[in-house]
Design a protein around this nucleic acid. Structure first.
Ligand SMILES: [Mn+2]
Ligand SMILES: [Mn+2]
Length: 414
DNA sequence: GAGATCG
DNA sequence: CGATCTCAACGCGAC
DNA sequence: GTCGCG
């Protein structure tokens, strides 16, 4: 071929081309064979080594492709519509949206599909909680535990065990994994008989019940500024068209952490920083996949939905007139193009108000990644809840006021 | 990342 | 021919 | 419809 050079692999009876096999994807991450640096071909080889486990999480499920074509440090984009020139071993499933639009998402069923996806620049795998055969009847309840800044592992573990208990009391078997980022995931398979609406309600019910049992440790509150040093039980991750990085997915972080399935007896003492592409292949080879039995005892959402009725409608936040009025004393500090820039301005602000800065807790600094139409920028907000009213600095002119529309041409369509 | 289009 | 351009997402609740 | 959130 004139252009499409690359390494051709024979995988599961199919030929898969890996373009730019030597491209350094994780320059700082350890390599399974020792040394530092993980290439695109290494990433493919990783997924082939754990293929059976990785496929247990994604096979037969429509997937969103999260593509890092410019590297792990650059902005990724999501691709729902599978490329039209896909090979025969990649199927599609047509998802329909409330908007009336639809998308043919990729569905893979073998290791060749894994290699093909990695070649597109994907690093983690993002399957929907449904099988291609029935796109509106989810078969997987996903408990997504997102620790607020500063929350430590011991607290995450405690919340995870409470969530496991709540699931068990309602007839569900929870399967634990690290997220590969800071948080934790617990999945429970269910019979695919109910719509997304019920899945989300069940997840919200788990979240509320966990919060009720350990209110100091966990929260079900959606608005960031209303959360304390808690683990957010992110029930909205069970809404339609939302996905989570699957088991055995490598995450796009410098050390190439893996979302690693665990046995419950490992959870308390696991060290997620040690579960990386470099270490996890050996673990998989020696110990197998802790989630091997995940499909064996699917439960139902019935008991959780009954509990939802018992708990009644969730308490709604106070409503104001017009704009949503925040419960918290929030001020905005800076808007910037990059996160490091934003953090620099945060330091500038802290230097300006050292006495105030000393009173802030980690959860009071809100670093928001803002998604525009096709741009990403950052915003720093400060929650002054822990600062006595008299000492609170006012909302001032922004230290930096990045304009996401700057440089855009005037003749954009609307 | 890949295909289309530009020069 | 290589260089450059273009494209690649959306659900949900509150307001 | 827009914003916040993921
Ligand atoms: Mn999470
Ligand atoms: Mn989340």
């Amino acid at each position: 071929m004139a252009k499409a050079q690359g390494t051709v692999l024979e995988v599961a009876g199919h030929e898969v081309t890996v373009t730019h096999p030597d491209k350094m994807v994780f320059p700082e991450a350890g390599h399974p064979a020792g040394g530092v640096g993980v290439t695109k071909l290494d990433l493919v080889q990783y997924y082939l080594a754990v293929a059976e486990g990785a496929l247990r999480g994604v096979s037969g499920r429509p997937m969103v492709l999260k593509r890092f074509v410019k590297g792990i440090d650059e902005e990724a984009f999501f691709q729902k519509r599978a490329p039209s020139n896909r090979p025969s071993f990649v199927e599609v499933a047509e998802l329909k949206y409330a908007s009336g639009r639809s998308a043919e998402e990729a569905v893979i069923r073998d290791a060749a599909g894994l290699a093909w996806i990695v070649n597109l620049g994907c690093i983690d795998l993002n399957p929907h909680p449904v099988l291609a055969e029935d796109l509106d009847k989810p078969d997987e309840l996903r408990i997504d535990l997102d620790p607020m800044p500063g929350v430590e592992w011991a607290q995450i573990v405690e919340v995870a065990f409470v969530a496991r208990q709540v699931l068990a009391e309602h007839g569900l078997v929870g399967w634990p994994k690290t997220s590969g980022s800071r948080g934790f995931h617990i999945y429970a398979r269910v019979d695919p008989t109910r719509p997304y609406k019920d899945l989300r309600l069940a997840a919200e019910t788990v979240a509320r019940e966990v919060e009720n049992r350990v209110p100091e440790l966990a929260t079900a509150r959606w608005w960031k500024e209303e959360r304390g040093s808690q683990v957010f039980v992110d029930f909205n991750q069970n809404a339609k068209d939302r996905t989570i990085a699957s088991a055995w997915s490598v995450r796009a972080v410098a050390d190439a952490r893996v979302s690693t399935p665990l046995r419950w007896d490992e959870v308390a003492h696991c060290r997620m920083e040690e579960l990386t592409l470099a270490t996890v292949t050996r673990r998989y080879t020696e110990q197998g996949d802790p989630w091997e039995g995940i499909g064996e005892q699917p439960g139902t959402l019935d008991a959780l939905l009954a509990l939802a009725k018992e708990l009644g409608p969730a308490e709604k936040p106070p409503k104001g007139v017009g704009r949503r009025q925040s419960t918290m004393p929030l001020i905005e500090i800076a808007k910037t193009k990059t996160k490091p820039e934003a953090l620099e301005w945060l330091e500038v602000w802290k230097a300006k108000y050292p006495d105030v800065a000393a009173k802030l807790e980690p959860v009071d600094v809100l670093v928001d990644g803002m998604r525009g139409r096709s741009s990403l920028w950052y915003r720093i907000r400060i929650n002054l809840q822990h600062v006595p009213e008299a000492e609170r600095p006012p909302q001032e002119e922004l230290l930096a006021d990045y304009n996401p529309w700057a440089g855009m041409t005037w003749n954009q369509e609307n």
